[in-house]
């Protein structure tokens, strides 16, 4: 327990001490939230409906999908994981503790957004707070697991940027954060349903706001949870102690299995 506590404390402090992580965990999402709250709600009053859930998802994605993979690759490249292995730090701790601390940072920001969205910017508060909290927990966990998987399979820091942006940019455009998924053209919807963000937004809309959705919000939440567990399992399986070790347990392309729940979900409706 002491080892876990020390490791967790260290990783949590790193999230504040490392300027890049501080930016991804707090400054960028809160700054963007303030900007969207001040400007977007005036430009498009309908956005007040999406402000709180969309900005929570944005904060979760910046800290996990954008922030988490880079340090994992850097530590592996610097040989830090080798020294961890020699000193008995187990793989689950190496992967789970940074993921957990990042989730913790994301939840702090999510709490700030959820509590200030309505009084500061007129954002619409959830009608079912329990469902809101549940969806947020599942969403942050899933994004955290996917961020960890990217950090494990990316061969370099540049690779993490590429893979992260492959998820982040389409999520911003097609994930239901800027406009409801129901407003997207029918031909684009299948693509959006391959994105975790779309499922999070569907779950928020249906379960936390009690509004109509394109897909079953409970199914969306289950798909998210399954893909989160799958992503973390794949990250543990594909984990490599160092980049010089040419013996791998599986090809990095196995990471694409994380899409399976979303593909299955497309046929469930």
């Amino acid at each position: 327990m002491t080892a876990f506590t020390n490791h967790f404390t260290y990783e949590f402090k790193t999230g504040l001490r490392n300027p890049s992580l501080l930016m991804m965990n707090y400054l960028f999402p809160l700054g963007f939230y303030a900007m969207m709250g001040l400007i977007m709600t005036k430009v498009n009053p309908g956005f007040t409906q999406l402000l709180i859930p969309a900005m929570v998802v944005f904060a979760a994605m910046t800290s996990t999908i954008l922030g988490l993979p880079g340090p994992l690759v850097e530590l592996r490249e610097a040989g830090v994981f080798r020294s961890f292995k020699i000193n008995g730090v187990p793989v689950p701790s190496i992967l789970a503790i940074p993921t957990l601390t990042t989730i913790f940072h994301a939840l702090i920001v999510a709490t700030i957004i959820a509590l200030t969205g309505a009084p500061l910017f007129g954002g619409v508060a959830p009608t079912n707070w329990t469902a809101f909290i549940l969806v947020t927990l599942v969403a942050v966990f899933t994004f955290g697991a996917i961020g960890t998987l990217i950090g494990v399979v990316a061969a370099s820091s540049r690779g993490t940027v590429l893979y992260s942006q492959l998820i982040f940019l389409p999520s911003m455009l097609l994930g239901g954060m800027m406009m409801p998924i129901s407003s997207l053209p029918a031909s684009v919807r299948p693509i959006s349903m391959l994105l975790p963000t779309a499922h999070v937004m569907q779950a928020y809309t249906g379960l936390a706001y009690g509004q109509g959705t394109v897909t079953n919000p409970v199914s969306a939440l289950v798909i998210l949870a399954i893909s989160g567990v799958l992503a973390f399992g794949l990250a543990s399986y594909l984990f490599n102690w160092d980049s010089r070790n040419n013996v791998r347990r599986g090809h990095p392309l196995l990471a694409l299995l994380v899409l399976v729940p979303y593909l299955v979900g497309m046929f469930l409706k």
Partner: peptide, 21 residues
Amino acid sequence: TSSLPWNMTVGEAMKFFCAYH
């Protein structure tokens, strides 16, 4: 190569590794 996370302090490193041992 003295492989520790660059932002880990001397005290944290000692606590971290001793705890795992």
